[in-house]
Design a protein around this nucleic acid. Structure first.
Lengths: 229, 229
DNA sequence: AGGAGTTTGTGAACGGGAGAACAAACTGAG
DNA sequence: CTCAGTTTGTTCTCCCGTTCACAAACTCCT
């Protein structure tokens, strides 16, 4: 029982909470940079753009890191959240598909500064090979397996066209990658135990378009209803 | 009452459903390109990566567009979903911040092909001005207001560094934009009635990192528990 | 020491979404 | 026309997440 987990907190953090922890972490880093030593749940919640009750409940899943009547020590909480997410260590990442988006991702400074290290850029197009992007040279896709094993890569990023994405994902899983961030506009099929998160630009825009349209329609309906009401 | 909405469907589509409609739409387009005329909820659900019961429930919010015992007409359903989302018309979009990511977004073909037209690229850096990216020339940020009014832009994309994002958002809202897609790693404050969707690359990676760590810990704990169990 | 004021952590109520299960409705064969 | 087979649309139940509200716990002032 003592060996089951490192702490005796309940170890099942709700998915919705996990998705917010990085937001809290960023807010805490900003506060720390501003010289703030201590903050209340209300302040942190405002900085993170959430309800303070939700923030407190989220933090309560990690443990009891605040002091009643005082608030939270910024540095201490920052470390605890970072530890819980796992960003106290460095995560090696491979990016496959060095088109426009791949370039942008490779150059994105937010990765490096948050504990993610791009260990390889891979592309199937031989024309790209040996080109250097963001200080890393582009290698043939076939080297995926070797690189994953060599660097113990657990996270892969897919930035290829849609048609290639499933093949890339299959090869990633085969090579031992267990978490995939997919930018290709396709539904990926993966075995149980492999996590996939997708970022789909056109879907995000379509969701916004729906709301624009709905707001426009509500505005019209509203003006009509003013007559009848 | 007849004028309240164009159809007599219930007009409150759940947010979770709205987020999936674009996925269904894409699956239907793929099916249509393959020459499929008709599909069952089971087939479409598989293509979209969801449960068939969930798919049917989602579609039921739009209306009753299937035929029992037969399935859905691919073209007809495709049109109905496109109309519901609003992508039967063209949406003008402005992109602010033409760095690596802005370049990638401007060149992303998925926008144009799904009814989104980039009418302007704006950047505060004078060094970028008059450069042509993806057939559109980069203009000074100050021209935002004029462009929004001229083209009736409702959707803005923020691809600036984090420090500039809130200012850009404020100016967008002031200019009349009601929907924002934010790629900057910041929490944006906007008035009621303005929709913001955020895409945060490092947060996505951090969520994946948490799961990798958890899986690794579970593996270790599992091997320990084999001893005690 | 004691009491007023503040803030956390959590129990409980509430709302929304997911999935199972089934009745309604259609097709096609005999 | 009837009946077996198929597939949708919907109801019902369960679970997760959000929010409210409050007791517990700490600080500071007198």
């Amino acid at each position: 029982m003592s060996a089951r987990t490192s702490n005796d907190h309940a170890r099942d953090i709700p998915e919705a909470t996990v998705a917010r922890l990085p937001v809290y972490l960023r807010a805490l880093i900003t506060l720390a940079e501003q010289g703030t030593m201590t903050c209340s749940s209300e302040e942190l919640a405002t900085a993170a753009g959430v309800n303070s009750a939700k923030l407190r409940k989220d933090l309560s899943y990690l443990g009891s890191y605040g002091t009643r009547g005082v608030g939270y020590d910024v540095e201490y909480l920052r470390y605890q959240i970072a530890r819980e997410i796992g960003v106290t260590q460095d995560w090696p990442v491979v990016i496959v598909g060095i088109g426009n988006l791949g370039h942008a991702l490779a150059n994105y400074s937010g990765f490096r500064s948050r504990g993610f290290r791009v260990v390889a850029l891979l592309d199937a197009d031989p024309g790209m090979h040996d080109e250097v992007v963001a200080g890393v040279d582009v290698r043939p896709f076939d080297e995926l397996e070797g690189i994953v094993v060599e660097h113990s890569v657990a996270i892969g990023v897919i930035a290829t066209p849609a048609v290639a994405a499933q093949d890339v994902a299959d090869r990633m899983v085969e090579a031992g990658i267990t978490s995939i961030l997919n930018f290709a506009p396709t539904v990926l099929g993966v075995p149980d135990g492999v996590d996939v998160r997708k970022v789909d630009l056109s879907i995000e825009l379509q969701i916004l378009a729906y709301h624009v349209q709905r707001k426009a329609a509500a505005g019209l309906a509203g003006s009509v209803e003013e007559d009848s009401a």
